[in-house]
Design a protein around this nucleic acid. Structure first.
Lengths: 235, 235
DNA sequence: TATTAAAATTAGGTATACCTAATAATAAAA
DNA sequence: TTTTATTATTAGGTATACCTAATTTTAATA
């Protein structure tokens, strides 16, 4: 409960690497993620490198060691299990769980987390659809990915969102995009990458590239071209 | 979640004042309670006095302001509700709950704590028998008190312990003192304040003054002299 | 009351986690 | 390839939370 800071650094690095699939994680990336300045981050990164939680050089950026990876996985795992518990067992709403889980993830008791995980029946995904890693960091397979990684012709099922601001949620309801809705991608604009979706009832709606990043979907079309590139989820 | 330190100071002061019934709480008291040195504590006390969480002068020692009291009550309340939840709902053992609750008490979500309190059915006491204060800090009435505050002739029911070390628990089992056992106080030694207990089956056992502080009991004898002095519980 | 013991306070030091401003190094673009 | 951005790094400063050692104050006791 005192390694708070370090846990948050490790989680941030994990999310940038695994979630956002960044090849190289930079000091600036971490600073942006945590809302800090680069000298602050650099200083901490150096001290964590001495502790062998990460490695750092300019070519490969910041990388988690085995040790650091284990800590990071644990935090992400706890976060997602708590989110699920809050949602399923304690009946919190979708939008409330993240903030509370952000605190609960730092509570250090393996027994506690395994107990609530057992009560939940060992789910593989949290209420946002994010995968729950096992203790070794292995993620369950998921078809889930952001809408932005689509191609024309994708047959999509809306699974969730990875952004919870009012303005974004309003945007979605104005466009009549809801959980479990289905759409086909009619056209992706060559210039701004906006997507024209078409529903079963032939309603069309245009989604900006920015919004598409935060809408989580699965493509139901077998062997769709969208499945060629590797898509994963984020926290 | 960053006011950790302050929350722990306020809790310590609350426990010294309300739990141990100290008239005057000193810098040294707090230092002992938190395992810190007096200059460290003094420095922090000064800064918290500026923030109006406490007041401090040499005559009346450290005192909680309305503000500081509210924070302290909240922490204690959360701690005891979590202990109850861990014990009753998540089936942790008596001895495990304290350490985990120590962390969970700092999770800041009124809604979370009220939800789990509701699930528990609004109990008035935690599994150690400690009273759960309401949001205003009002404690439920309890007959519970340490064995050390007994007089000769008390008819006692063992309710619990406020110390969980192996050595202490072994001490109790050697003396055949267990939960819900009943004893009468045959004699309190005038010199070392050790207590001679006598069970229904006429077995005698001698309990030292030190051990008596950590054994929680209720006196079943009406109008017993032990009830004259005000006795309360501690965390 | 003088002495001793205990508690509080002051002084000064360390480590951590932040920051700004300035400079150096690297990558991108003209 | 030179210029321009972007990143990284260094230097130096602040605040917090700790510490030890020394001193002062207060309380207890002889």
């Amino acid at each position: 409960m005192q390694s708070f800071k370090e846990e948050n650094y490790l989680k941030a690095i994990y999310q940038l690497k695994i979630g956002d699939q960044k090849e190289v994680v930079t000091i600036t990336d971490i600073a942006v993620q945590l809302g800090l300045k680069t000298p602050t981050v650099l200083e901490k990164i150096k001290s964590m490198a001495i502790k062998k939680l990460i490695s750092y050089d300019k070519i490969s950026g910041v990388q988690l060691t085995k040790n650091g990876f284990d800590v990071a996985v644990n935090i992400v795992r706890r976060h997602r299990i708590w989110e699920t518990y809050l949602y399923k067992e304690l009946k919190f709403s979708w939008s409330e769980v993240h903030e509370i889980a952000e605190q609960l993830e730092h509570v250090n008791s393996a027994k506690l987390i395994e107990k609530i995980y057992a009560i939940l029946g060992y789910p593989k995904f949290d209420p946002h659809g994010d995968p729950i890693p096992d203790l070794k960091g292995v993620l369950p397979k998921s078809e889930r990915r952001p809408l932005s990684k689509s191609v024309e012709g994708c047959k999509l099922l809306i699974l969730g969102v990875s952004e919870h601001s009012d303005s974004f949620l309003n945007y979605l309801s104005e466009k009549h995009i809801g959980l479990n809705d289905r759409f086909v991608i009619e056209k992706i604009d060559g210039f701004d990458e906006s997507l024209m979706l078409i529903s079963k009832s032939k309603e069309r709606c245009l989604v900006s590239a920015k919004a598409a990043k935060f809408i989580q979907v699965a493509c139901l079309k077998e062997n769709c071209a969208c499945k060629a590139s590797g898509g994963t989820t984020k926290a």
